[in-house]
Nucleic acid binder design. Structure first.
Lengths: 350, 350
DNA sequence: CTTATTCTCGAAAACGCTTACACCGCGAGC
DNA sequence: GCTCGCGGTGTAAGCGTTTTCGAGAATAAG
């Protein structure tokens, strides 16, 4: 028994305190130290205090790898997003990571870049690192991949894509309501020819928004006659720019447009101005998401706020329910939206 | 010896393949399997093939926690940024994570939010997760914290804050050059009264940019007379807005301004327009960073491009040199900048 | 044909923690 | 007076790898 590894070979990482040193110092066994650390009620209060004292004195903190190996829990929460570069996501990541941290979880972020191979790799990483739970905030997700997680009993939470089930939750954003208030806002301003800059068709949430738009319009007796009035802006600035140009080229161009997200709206803003028109005098535009930037476009963008921080927190809550409380059921909280009226919309005139 | 843990208690995570099963399947010892996995040249090619075959058949992948525990290496790279919500960072995170992934590292991101407590916590997390290396892309970093990492021989790389040393690298951005070309650009357009919207004073890089600005101007014989011509925009949109308003209120307002970052410039853009003036006809503005958004402001922003992806890749390279190649020295690559001329600058007239 | 090398490989210790199980007083119940 | 239960604690097995050490076979050298 020639222990003392750290003495033999000064491994990378240097000498690090182990639970044994704490045990020795506190004059107890390693088991008791472990129990004290986990606030196990079975250890005598006095003993526990002695242990904590030693811990502080030695500036000890447990080796997470050993801990994970022994306990089977990694205390890592996975978060998969489509594109961290999209301004929608950083706040989401931040909120999630923060909530996770509060519960003692580290967050492993993966950005799929809308790419199947990367997505698959992302799941693989979650599996390898043995994430205790995974939040999947992207829709490009193969069934087989989530099956892999399901098989291993990894709790999951989705954003608007899956049905809740065992260990699976889903956040449902009330897009219909959001789109509805936006459209009604436009209608109440007197607009009748309203265009829509949709998102990529393979994105469920984008489809939902478009459907909601269409339905809302026909409910108001304004059903779209020209199908070209809804056109794909790809949820990106340049896509929005192009899409808006198409709308402007129409014989009967819209007097107002609703964009499927703010990036698209920003592109539209530029296209309109480039065409020599003014917002909101000539055309009103409303976005969707309310990214931070929306308040600083020119003019400031009227948009439907999608509460990212709330989404993030709810998402982690869902996971925590399964991870910490050991519940097996999934839930489906509804996320509300809110119209933020700024200066890119105005009454229709002329 | 009652092994079969996975049979006894179906732990969370389900039955997971272990190296022993592979060994059994390939008719070798676990040691050989381990060696085969690591492409150890000492294992016979034929045996290795047999092992790999078994691995594929069983869909086996190693338990990272066991691996980390035994090897002392976590294959986790830490990345600490000040604010992931700041559009400057997501690209950085993305680039870093990507580079890391290619070398088999997962990235643990921490956002300090410019807060000392959080920063301290971030370091702690890196320590606990035993990150093999840490990239520190924020300047609010206490000496004592980095000492903690240094003690444990964790390689580090900084962005413009530290001196390189043992296991410590530093990326040096050539701000002087960037600011220089921007100022010369403005001067060549005929501008003589040039204002500066600086960043927060506690940020080293912000100070450097301001100094460079001042020096560059005096080199050109245009030394600033009115100290109010350089004012703090806080590196944020609203800060830039306010700062620009202060500049506009001056008796002799500038005909061009250089902002310490793009966010500030965007705020300035709005302030100028709000004051009823036009960019670039009345005032030219140039930003710094070239965030994605800069191409889509109105007008598109002339700015100094700071290559974030390159920074990210270089940063990881620096760490990898120490982590993988085992070199002990640090380096200090210089990161160049490039002026991107768009439409927010124009010749001075009248 | 023996001895020294080189190749391959296996046994088993070690990594640092968790946890099932055993154990040891000690007051309570009969 | 003896068993029972229980709060507290220690012992040691086990988590799934990596890695040292040495053994055996095969090859090279003498």
């Amino acid at each position: 028994m020639k222990h003392r590894s750290s003495l033999a070979i000064p491994r990378l990482g240097g000498t690090s305190m182990s639970i044994r040193e704490v045990a020795k110092r506190a004059n107890v066994s390693t088991a008791t130290v472990s129990r004290a650390i986990h606030h196990d009620s079975r250890v005598n209060a006095e003993t526990a205090e002695r242990v904590w004292h030693a811990i502080r004195e030695l500036n000890y903190y447990p080796n997470v790898h050993a801990r994970s190996l022994a306990s089977g829990r990694s205390h890592i929460a996975g978060l998969i997003v489509s594109d961290i570069t999209n301004p929608f996501f950083p706040e989401l990541v931040q909120g999630f990571a923060e909530a996770a941290l509060e519960s003692g979880y580290d967050t492993l972020v993966a950005s799929t870049n809308y790419d199947a191979a990367r997505t698959s790799l992302a799941i693989r990483r979650m599996l390898e690192r043995k994430a205790d739970g995974v939040a999947i905030m992207t829709s490009e997700m193969d069934e087989s991949l989530i099956a892999e997680l399901k098989n291993r009993n990894v709790p999951m939470v989705f954003l608007d894509v899956a049905e809740p089930g065992r260990l699976i939750s889903n956040l449902r954003v009330d897009y219909a309501d959001g789109v509805g208030t936006a459209v009604r806002h436009l209608i109440s301003l007197g607009h009748r020819r309203i265009g829509f800059l949709s998102g990529p068709d393979n994105l469920k949430s984008a489809r939902v928004r478009r459907e909601a738009f269409l339905e809302c319009l026909s409910n108001a007796g304004l059903a779209i006659e020209d199908p070209r009035m809804v056109t794909d802006g790809g949820h990106r600035i340049d896509g929005g720019f192009d899409a808006m140009q198409r709308l402007l080229a129409l014989d009967e161009r819209p007097t107002a447009v609703l964009a499927s997200n703010d990036l698209t709206a920003i592109g539209a803003l530029r296209a309109i101005r480039t065409a020599g028109l003014r917002v909101p005098e000539d055309i009103s535009v409303v976005g969707f998401d309310d990214i931070q930037l929306a308040a600083f476009t020119d003019p400031p963008l009227t948009t439907v706020r999608l509460p990212r921080t709330e989404i993030a927190e709810r998402a982690f809550e869902c996971l925590a329910r399964n991870m910490d409380l050991g519940q097996e059921d999934g839930t489906e909280p509804v996320i509300g939206t809110k119209l933020v009226v700024r200066a890119s919309t105005a009454p229709y005139h002329r």
